[in-house]
């Protein structure tokens, strides 16, 4: 088939115009945030929100990081950042290990009733988080974990199980069963086969799971607000507090800087690992 050089047909130009428009539409808010965060308040009051800053200042960024008021205290969202790190690290590692273990057990050991267990776990993925909120508050209260770091990590662990189990189960289901049988004949037990054979083979899917989990935990607001407790509030909650705490004028530039700071981690993860992400998803798709 002959391929026409089609970069200049009207249809092509239309497509490019649409794509450029769409890109502009999504980039515009980011642009406004960025320029506003670099302007002093006097310039913002002029009301030209699309104008480039006449005089670039980093003061709002410093303020947002370490000076803005999140209620009574005025220490910026720095504390929230470290709280989020403290939540995200264990709430990524633990669910991945457990999800991989679940998927491995379901794919290879097939305990009696495995399909029923899996179906129940999957059903959990379709129930809205809000429905389970109050019962979970009571359960965590009874366990003495409400409002603590282990508590919020446990909550993230619970809510991540269905999807992570599904992800790993499907990945392992695509591996040849004979691999597992060979390891059984070689004398491998449940944990040894998992640790020495399956985990090293799971790197692509672990990367995908880690991206999903870090992003999900970092962007979470409601679970952090309810379960984390006053000392462990994640960055998203702190951001909300910064924006809603006003004494005198609303500091738009500080708010914008704080917002960008909060979304920096998921953004960075997408930029660094986007290729891995697509590869992992595609690998799963092709192999079933």
């Amino acid at each position: 088939m002959k391929r026409r050089k089609s970069s200049s047909t009207p249809a092509r130009l239309g497509i490019y115009a649409f794509l450029a428009g769409a890109a502009l539409f999504f980039l515009l808010p980011l642009y406004v945030m960025l320029v506003t965060s670099l302007k002093p308040m006097d310039e913002i009051r002029l009301g030209h929100i699309f104008a480039l800053p006449l005089q670039i200042t980093l003061e709002p960024w410093r303020d947002a990081w370490s000076g803005a008021c999140t209620g009574v205290a005025c220490e910026g969202i720095r504390g929230g950042f470290w709280n989020s790190v403290a939540i995200a690290v264990p709430a990524t590692i633990l669910p991945i290990v457990l999800g991989a273990l679940n998927g491995y057990a379901l794919s290879f050991w097939r305990p009696r009733g495995a399909n029923i267990l899996f179906a129940i776990l999957m059903a959990g993925a379709f129930i809205p988080v809000q429905v389970m909120m109050f019962p979970l508050v009571r359960v965590l209260g009874a366990l003495g974990l409400f409002g603590s770091l282990p508590g919020i990590v446990l909550v993230h662990l619970i809510f991540s199980m269905p999807v992570l189990t599904l992800l790993f189960r499907n990945y392992y289901a695509a591996l040849p069963q004979e691999l597992f049988q060979a390891a059984r004949i070689d004398g491998g037990g449940f944990l040894r086969i998992f640790v020495q054979l399956m985990l090293p083979m799971s790197l692509p899917i672990i990367v995908v799971a880690a991206i999903m989990q870090v992003t999900g935990v970092w962007n979470d607001y409601i679970l952090g607000l309810v379960f984390a407790g006053r000392d462990n509030l994640p960055m998203t909650v702190q951001l909300n507090n910064v924006i809603n705490t006003t004494t005198g004028t609303r500091l738009y530039n500080v708010n914008m800087a704080a917002t960008i700071l909060t979304s920096l981690v998921p953004l960075a993860i997408y930029f660094i690992s986007g290729r891995w992400f697509v590869r992992g998803i595609a690998a799963g798709a092709v192999k079933g």
Partner: peptide
Amino acid sequence: IGMVFQSYALYPT
């Protein structure tokens, strides 16, 4: 016993 499989089933890592 020792066993040889159709798909070889070598440990890839």
